[in-house]
Design a protein around this nucleic acid. Sequence first.
DNA 1: GTAGGGTTAG
Length: 714
Amino acid sequence: MSNPVFRLSRSTLTIPTILNLATFSPARTRQLHAHIIKSGLLNDNSLSSKLLSLYSNHRCFAEASIFLDSIDEPSSSSFSIIINALSKFNFFNNVVDLFRKMLSKGVCLDSYLLPAVSKACAGLSAFELGRQVHGLAQVSGCSLDVVVQSSLVHMYVKCGRLSIARKVLDEIPEPDVVTFSAMIAGYARNGDVGMAKRLFGDMGKLGLEPNLVSWNGLIAGFNQSGRHLEAIHVFLDMHLRGCQPDGSSFSSVLAAIADLEVLNVGIQVHGYVIKRGFACDKWVVSSLVDMYGKYACVSEMKQVFDEMGCMEIGSCNALVSALARNGLVNDALAMFSQMRERKMDLNVVSWTSMISCCSQNGKDVEALELFTAMQLAGVKPNAVTIPCLLPACGNIAALMHGKAAHCFSIRRQITNDVFVGSALIDMYAKCGKIRDSQLCFDAMPTRNTVSWNAVIGGYAMHGKDKEALEMFDLMLKSGQKPNFITFTCLLSACNQKGLVDEGWRYFNCMQKEHGVEAKMEHYACMVSLLSRVGKLEEAYSVIKEMPFEPDACVWGALLSSCRTNKNLKLGEIAAERLFKLEPRNPGNYVLLSNIYASKGMWGDVDRVRDLMKDMGLKKNPGCSWIEIKNKVHMLLAGDRTHPQMSQIIHKMEALGKEMRKAGLDPKIDYVLQDVEEQDKEQMLCGHSEKLAVAFGLLNTPAGFPLRVIKNLRI
DNA sequence: GTAGGGTTAG
């Protein structure tokens, strides 16, 4: 006989023997179900409990529910079995539904199912619902149970209501180490690691010995609050007090180590990980991969990942971002495709990491495509995804996509997030919508340095020096500290308008008054500013006095102005440096030959052209775009009423085709897509910087200062 | 039979 139940029913086996069978497959469970119906044993309590457990453990909740419905008067323990299993598998909505159904049937509460319901409310962050459950627990008398109390503390913590959670904790006559751990983790997660530490101490005073989970909560708390060194100290303390770390302790402490300059400590902990047998723990591997990635130990991070011997989503995500962080963009993309091919369950972190990798490495169109693919895959973007995506919209002036992301943020109610807000400011500014940019800034409930930099940088980018400088004053008044990016934006604004005095003022005060060291970008701005107003010798002195070697940006600024001012002596010096630093940039050769041409030195013009030929370089694709470049520059200078706007657009289209033929990607479709739908003139004015990007102007010295701003990650 | 902790994306 192939049917086991049939065989059972015919055999001498009794029902109690069946119940003792350790495991039943789902199919066998269904057969048992049929057997129970056939034998009329539906209301046998122990049998029905066994069947419900079997179904629930196999996640056959539909069958469990059908069986529950067939019982005449189901007890709270019958509901409890399914509710606990649903909660264990994180089916929180179903927990709530079944709990409601149970109440509607008038079944009494018991303290075995309340923690699961409370956990579901915690998982759903359903504060109101959780409060009602708390009320029911009090009415039914279940709230005296320490397990129920602990679950309520956890629920309030997860809903972000720390003071209520603490009140519940304080009212428990005999809280145990689990209750304390929930509260400690709550304080830790919400950034109040001081309270977490105090409570940890209180627990000791009550004679409760902290266990592994409480130590881990504290380590994670210090790590998440950015107090990395203290996280390491707690880890050592725990070890000294005889509590041996587990995967959770290791993953937190390694994350802390990753953000400090202590690679040797990391290597020692890695040794400890191996010794304790956690080298294949998925959490630990993720942290190790991330740590080695942050220390640029590429082979180590790959080795740790490979030695785990399986593809697990968390560690794969860690590897993707570690590869991206180390500039191995193609490897990161390959890894991500492999994850997709293997049909791994990609989560929001997987998609967000990849979007971030693309938007930071010039793969803007790919970033936008990934955002669409992510949603098609049913993964909801969150408050981290949006700030990763928006720079891609800004980089190619894809205003429609940026707006869509903005609308998405409004629907998801994440516009109050400081990262989302700052990224929106930056995106609108880069798409030419400086007013929208300001509106987003105004709407922010809290701002940080990044938000101020975004709005100041936006005005600087649009040549609105007054507004940029005004915003800086407001920034100082608000008490927000400026950083090196703030000063780059300010100097860039001064540079565009030739404000030499203001430029020097900011340059001199940044170190003295604000403790910000002058970097390459600041020197580049000063050199550009001075040479722009014809003070070439002064600019050259600044270069000579720089405390580090000037880069191509600095020399490019000088060369560009030497052409305008027909200064051969300094032009040759700058060009010589540039030919070494950027031998393959045709713009440098063109500029020098222009200076020679302006002086009628045709022999030297030929010499530079031969130099270009030797390098296998052509002039920038389709030299007719020099014409466009001038017009774009006119727009940059603030000419908002150019009479030939529609011709410029046609020219852009033609150039786009030409560039594409030459195998170049002008990304013009994205620019034009927006232009089509908006008032063209209005858009084009705002798009001046984007046009410069689209046509590769930033790769020529003439593209300064856009080049400086573009390279900034606000 | 019920409760607590972790990593990777800005």
